[in-house]
């Protein structure tokens, strides 16, 4: 089994024919189970920052405070905070997440680890104005947020699960998403509306589309598939299914709600 896996990995790197990649997959640091980062000078941090901007910023933001991917400035990481865990996750990615590996030489990976560590030198946790307890009340009452968002297993499923939002997003990002959700829609939550031949309309979150068919998660939380021959129109508005709430939550209310959402961490 392991032989098979190893040869298949070899085959795949040959396919991409990238000499650095070949070194990587057979990473010496992984093989030797190196625990501590050997590349931690200021020059390493600077070199790591370059790699980060090239390979990581698309999801984690140019400053590491998050986007589609989690905020990395806290100094605590869900999938392991040790040097070895960071190294591995950056090298090969994290299963069941959007995080793919960057497959670069060991030294570059260690330098990215150094850079990521430097992001949290200020202490990590951001001071947020607002009262999280009151924010929680707003979330549950006026906001009706749980109609569409799930929190620790209860609530709707149309929008992203917020159970660990505080791990994934910086407060500014949370605030912006409440005020103008369409500005930053998670890749997996694009809005789609289709009209069927009989004139019916189905709206939801796009899951997949090809020349012949389209799949979506409709707003009644059904997984739906349509042949395009059954449809008269398909629209993908650049809107979020979530309405902008900037005029609804202002000042103290907004601060409290952000404080609450930022406080959400996995149990």
């Amino acid at each position: 089994m392991s032989l098979l896996a190893a040869s298949a990995l070899l085959a795949s790197v040959t396919f991409w024919s990238h000499p650095a990649a070949a070194q990587n997959v057979l990473s010496k640091a992984l093989q030797d189970r190196v625990q501590e980062n050997p590349h931690t000078t200021e020059a390493d941090v600077a070199a790591g920052a370059k790699v980060f901007r090239r390979s990581c910023s698309l999801c984690h933001g140019a400053d590491g405070t998050g986007g589609d991917g989690p905020d990395l400035t806290r100094g605590v990481f869900r999938h392991g905070s040790s040097d070895a865990a960071l190294f591995r996750n950056i090298l090969t990615g994290i299963p069941n997440s959007g995080m793919g590996g960057i497959y670069q030489p060991d030294k570059s990976i260690w330098q990215v680890v150094s850079y990521v560590r430097s992001l949290s030198r200020g202490g990590g946790e951001e001071e947020v104005p607002g009262d999280p307890r009151r924010g929680g009340m707003l979330y549950r009452s006026r906001g009706s947020c749980s109609d569409c968002h799930r929190l620790n297993g209860s609530g709707g499923r149309l929008g992203p699960d917020l159970s660990d939002l505080g791990w994934r997003r910086a407060p500014d990002h949370i605030r912006a998403s409440i005020v103008e959700p369409a500005e930053s829609i998670d890749g997996g939550y694009r809005t789609v509306e289709v009209r069927t031949e009989s004139g019916g309309i189905v709206r939801g979150v796009l899951r997949n589309e090809d020349r012949f068919s389209i799949q979506l998660f409709d707003e009644f939380e059904n997984l739906r598939s349509f042949q395009k021959t059954e449809l008269t129109a398909i629209d993908k508005p650049e809107e979020s299914l979530m309405p902008p709430l900037g005029s609804f939550f202002r000042g103290r209310d907004l601060d409290d709600l952000v404080a609450y959402l930022y406080s959400l961490r996995p149990e």
């Binding site: 906001g143 509306e193 508005p237 809107e239």
Partner: peptide, 22 residues
């Protein structure tokens, strides 16, 4: 929820901009 934004009740979904398709 009086005055709460429309579009977050699943029973009667309405998009933000009613100019959209339907």
């Amino acid at each position: 929820c009086a005055g709460a934004p429309a579009g977050i009740r699943r029973e009667a979904p309405v998009l933000r901009k009613p100019t959209l398709l339907f």
